[in-house]
Amino acid sequence: MTIIFSFGIIALVTKTLDRLTEGETGVIVGFDLPTDTQIRLMEMGFLEGHEVTLVRFAPLRDPLEVDVLNSRISIRRSEASGIRLRQFG
């Protein structure tokens, strides 16, 4: 987890999608995924600059239900951990 201080007071926190708690929102800043997977996610609306909300985890904490562009998409932790987010912390 990286912490970037800007303006001294407001901290911009980056973390991966799987580290959000249920109900938390972040903005996508980048991917650490194989290109194919990245493009598939991008075509479903997971794009840099887009807001995503972690809605919930499935009973065994995998996969995750994510809200992006007003629709609900389910992805696995393994992919979610490759999506980097920016959050106002």
């Binding site: 997977t37 996610l41 629709s71 609900r72 998409i73 389910s74 992805i75 696995r76 393994s78 992919e79």
Partner: peptide, 11 residues
């Protein structure tokens, strides 16, 4: 290899 699982949950 494990494959990505991407599935829409429609309303």
């Amino acid at each position: 290899q494990a494959t990505p699982f991407i599935l829409e949950l429609p309303p």
